[in-house]
Amino acid sequence: MSGSPPSDDPAAIAYDGSFLGFLCAVADALNLARAGLPPPPIQARVAESGLFDETVEARRDDARAASLWGRLSRRLGDERMRTCLEAFCSDFEGRETALAAVLARALAAGPAAFDDLNDPATLLVARAARRAGGQAHLVSGLVRFAELADGSWYAPIEPDCDVLPLVAEHFAARYADMAFVIHDRRRRTALVHRPGAPWALVEGFELAGGDPALAPRELELREGWRGYFTSVSIAQRENRRLQASHMPKKYWRFLPEMAPARAAPPAPPADSAGDPC
């Protein structure tokens, strides 16, 4: 799964980085497997790589992807498909190839193939899914919306895994009446939601015109929340290690409650220095 394949190995399959593109690559891999050929590695295409001599490109075809997804869902059930999506969204090296291998096995042997953690590919998929799923769960609690002057809502995140596809449904259902953006600043993607419309994932998202202006009560409410957060801790039970183990420090930068006391609370996006407060 790692290292460049020697020339007599089967070519790798490259895809465009999207989940739908990946499904098309899986469809290709399944075809090869059916023809008795060893399944080739699958990897997101990286620009200008010498490896591409060896690599077949899976053309993205959304209808084909949807049809494979439907077939897999019927055979494996929604829970397993969620596992697949989670594993795909993780940051584990080799997850695509492992997923394709597990899906091939599961199509042949049934969904229980996902339980055989003695198999390295299955174990990798399970671990990857747990990592991304866990991070998505954490992020669903740690997103902090700021109300903007125009009445819409904005929250920046920088997770290790690509969690937006995993949390989109949750936020759209919960804040159905809000126009909001959750901005993954690491990947420059965003979950965009408007009341009454389906949510959408946007690539290459930038905030137009720098820092958005905040709604009038925003800073007062952040102060109130900070005050609340400080008060609820029981001094005699202080345990910073436990706190940091639940809520790793890398998440703190967008949390108003973790901002140093008396400093201006971080405005979205957090690298803006000059909040008028």
Binding site: L142, A173, Y175, R237, Q243
Partner: peptide, 23 residues
């Protein structure tokens, strides 16, 4: 959530922060 409403329950529960005592 209901149409025009705000919020819903998450059956597994969600933590939104951890206080200095780790709760």
């Amino acid at each position: 959530n209901a149409p025009g409403g705000l919020g819903n329950g998450a059956v597994g529960g969600i933590c939104h922060a951890w206080a200095a005592d780790g709760r």
